[in-house]
Amino acid sequence: MKKLLITTAVSLLALSTSAMAATTIRIGHGANETYHLHRALQKFADNVETKSNGKFDVQIFPSSQMGPDREMIESVQSGMLQMAVSPSSFYSAWDKSFDVVELPFIYPSKEVALRTVHSDAGDDMLKRLNNINLVGLGWLENGVRHVSNNSRPIKTPEDLKGLKIRTMKVPAHVKTFNSLNASATPMNFGEVYSALQQGVVDGQENPVAHIYSQRFYEVQDYVSLTSHVITFYIPTMNMEFWYSLSAEDQQLLLDSMRLAEDYQQQLVSTEEGEQIKAFMEAGTKVNELSQEDLQIFIEATEPVRAEYKANLGPEVYDSWMNAIKAESEKS
């Protein structure tokens, strides 16, 4: 009888332990661990684990450990990975509407861009992900993109003439730099430092925080604050996994992501000035562009915007531009 009681107790303990096992959420992204995105995702993970009393175990895999962005997104679609955090432009491989988010010189400021993606227009864009077996949890900053190179400061489109500039593998970005007289050279993010170091490309374009965290400034003589494109990450989750969660748990994930978004903005605003200072201390020359200078770039890239307006149609293009205008008027 005693043996039976002991066996029963052990079995009940095993069942209890199994019931209490945490649900694992694995998140892949391409940035390194010092980048503000990774630290924002750590904030997300901490909040989810704490508020759920350990019901979830959130594991973050930076630096493309889960593969390049397209591969990560496909892993989430198939359910092999629960979450990926990739630039919004990569989702245009499945839905061209996402091209409109990262067109050149469409936002008058980063603040307006942030308000636009968090508006009804941004929510409608995220809903499109449901058609490809994904759920979008929000918008995280990738950043305002600038040009670095080893030849000269960039003040006009003419200064880009003949320079090989690494871009993301995003058609709109490639078209933008080709329209500015440069030779756009798409390349995986992990290859950029060595390509700059070995002179395979003359320069690259990225937000200040990426130039800093990836130490591109060590192998670049000039950083020009061109602000040509503002980019975002979209954290996406496998749809089946999402709908396996309770409404309460879904809300916890959404609330935690919004907390991460706010925390990321604090990091960016606190650190960007110091990062630019670090470039200059390392001997990299930094130049800003006046509004008059930027206007020349805006005019030079008008054909790119016109092409995407024709291709995407008014439902997508005009709706997004109207949302930007509405948010601009709130300033």
Rank of each mutant, 00 (worst) to 15 (best):
A172F: 08
P157R: 04
L225G: 05
S11V: 15
H228E: 13
A9R: 01
T301W: 01
R305M: 05
A93V: 14
W320N: 01
T23A: 01
D318I: 02
L41A: 01
V229E: 11
P68L: 09
T17G: 05
K169M: 14
E292H: 07
K169D: 15
G199I: 05
T226P: 00
E281K: 14
D293I: 03
G122V: 02
H36M: 07
L103T: 02
R39E: 10
T270M: 11
E218F: 02
I60V: 07
P303G: 00
E33L: 06
N238F: 04
E307M: 11
G273D: 15
E274S: 14
E111F: 02
W242R: 10
V192S: 12
F279C: 06
I6C: 05
K43N: 14
G67R: 05
P87K: 03
M83C: 10
N311F: 08
E218Y: 02
A31V: 11
M72C: 10
V101A: 10
V85W: 01
L103I: 04
F232E: 11
T301A: 07
R152C: 03
F241H: 10
M1V: 09
L15K: 06
M237S: 03
P186S: 04
L13E: 09
E71D: 12
A323C: 06
N47W: 02
M280Q: 15
V85D: 05
E141H: 09
Q65G: 12
M187R: 06
H118Q: 10
V170N: 13
S183V: 15
S109L: 04
L225F: 05
Y263K: 11
R258S: 13
F98A: 00
H29F: 04
I298K: 13
P303C: 04
Q295Y: 10
S151E: 14
Q291D: 15
Y222Q: 02
S328P: 01
H228F: 12
G162F: 07
P303V: 08
Q42D: 10
K110M: 13
L252Y: 05
E218N: 08
S213V: 00
